[in-house]
Structures are given as C-alpha cells and as structure tokens.
C-alpha cells in the first residue's frame, strides 16, 4: 500500500499553492501541519481528485488519481462539508455509500457499524440539520470510512469535537492507521502529537520537514538552536509559522 506524490503543483493565478511536492507514504498516520494558506487543503483536494494538479502525478498502489479504482479506495472528509437538509444521518450515509458503489445491504450494515464507532447510533434516524457541529463532524468521519478505504484523507477532522470525542477520534485513527494510510491535517498540534506516526510540516506550498517522528523533528530543530531544549511540538509550530499567523486561507 503506497501513496506517491511526484512533483505535484497547483497554482491559483499568481499564487503557487502547492509547489512541486514529492512524497511517498506507506501505511500509518500522517499529520499535516501548517498555517492558514500553507497549501494543506489544496494538497488534500488534489490527493482526493477534487482538484486537478497543474503538474506532477499522484498514484495509489499504481492507480492514477483520475481513475475510478483510485477513488474506490479513498475516504475523504473535507474541511467544510455539507449535507442535504431533508436527509437523516442514515439517508446521508446511504447516499454516500451509493455514490461510492456499495450495495444497499452492505451499506446498511456498514452504516450501523460506523454509527456505533462514532457514537451516533441513537441519532441515525434524525435529520442532519438538527445535529450539533460535533455530531456533524462525527457523521463526516463515518461517511469517509463507509467504503473501508485504504487511503483516508481527513481535513481538520477534530474541528468542533469536544475533548471526549477528540479522545475517541484519536483512538479510532490509531486503529485505522495500522493497516491504512491516514493523512490528516489540523491546526491542533496536540492531535498530531498523539496519533501521527510521521509529521509533515508545510509552508508556502512546500514541505519544510518530513520527519519520521515528533522527536526527530524536535531534535533537528534543537540542533539548529531554533527551539529551547525543553520545547514541545507546539513551540516548534510557533517557531515555523509565527510569521504567517493571521494569514488568510487561499483555498
């Protein structure tokens, strides 16, 4: 199982959002960290086939991103996703399952399993429009997993989750990452600290670091004298991205 990005680029008018990014990922959890406008969402949308790269190639186990089979192995939670107002949570999952090509009976079985995983089993028959932000986010996570994907891309998955839900989510991601590729982006450094096997720091459309672990990243920064000896990942984040605080999201 391998996701390969080969010199992938994307430009919006005069701004280069993603600049010749190359990467090879095997099974595991990957945390994508970066300030607003770093290019995280653009990169994720290209990996999910929502945006077409201006240059470069994206493949998963040899399948090109434009192929149906590629998307068959993909689960994507967009940063900002919606729902059809008249849908219940079950309708929503069954709809997504249908457009993912899952037969109805299997879709129903998977939906109930996932409702249990994300703690929405009692709300399955309720309209999504009545859900809180956290409940919607959990439903979003469930839809990303309904096809049992090999490649899971989660854009800001913990947004709107309360601390208890966040812990539940981390545990779930840890489990999923054992035999899948999970790529998640977040502003919340502690989420990455706890679950990511590898941290990808992104700035101005490029990877600053592709560290194997949080420790490796910190060691490297300490060696450069960029952060104090007792620094945590959060300090490192502030060091790298302080000049972009308050910047605007280009995507």
């Amino acid at each position: 199982m391998q996701l390969i990005l080969d010199r992938v680029s994307k430009q919006y008018k005069n701004k280069i959002a993603v600049d010749r990014v190359s990467l090879e990922l095997g099974p595991g959890v990957y945390g994508l960290l970066g300030a607003n406008g770093a290019g995280k969402t653009t990169l994720m949308r290209m990996i999910c086939g929502v945006l077409r790269p201006d240059g470069g190639e994206i493949t998963f186990d040899g399948l090109d991103v434009s192929e149906e089979a590629y998307r068959d192995a993909l689960g994507y939670l967009p940063q900002d996703f919606g729902y059809y107002p008249e849908f219940t949570a079950m309708d929503f999952l069954l709809y997504i399952a249908a457009i993912k090509g899952i037969p109805k009976r299997e879709a129903k079985r998977r939906a109930w399993e996932l409702f249990e995983v994300v703690g929405l089993e009692k709300q399955a028959g309720k309209k999504v429009r009545t859900f809180s932000g956290g409940m919607r986010q959990r439903l979003g996570i469930a839809q990303a997993l309904i096809n049992d994907p090999g490649l899971i891309v989660l854009d800001e998955p913990t947004a709107g989750l309360d601390p208890k839900e966040r812990v539940r989510f981390r545990n779930m991601i840890e489990r999923l990452g054992k035999r899948r590729i999970v790529l998640l982006s977040t502003h919340i450094v502690s989420d990455v600290e706890h679950v990511a096997d590898r941290i990808l720091l992104m700035k101005d459309g490029r990877f600053l670091h592709k560290a194997q672990s949080e420790q490796e990243l910190l060691d490297e920064a300490r060696a450069k004298g960029a952060v104090p000896e007792d620094a945590a990942l959060e300090d490192l984040y502030l060091y790298y991205f302080r000049d972009r605080e308050g910047g605007s999201e280009e995507e």
């Binding site: 998307r71 068959d72 996703f81 919606g82 457009i99 993912k100 090509g101 096809n147």
Partner: peptide, 19 residues
C-alpha cells in the same frame, strides 16, 4: 456547491461521471 457537497461527491468512485 452552496450545500458544500461538491468535494465529497467528487472524491467518490462514481462522483465524477455516473452521479
């Protein structure tokens, strides 16, 4: 797009053509 379903649909197996 207004309902923000586009990205989710496009990332699915049938989202680009059959839907």
């Amino acid at each position: 797009t207004t309902l923000r379903m586009d990205a989710m649909i496009l990332s699915t197996r049938f989202g680009k053509n059959k839907v």
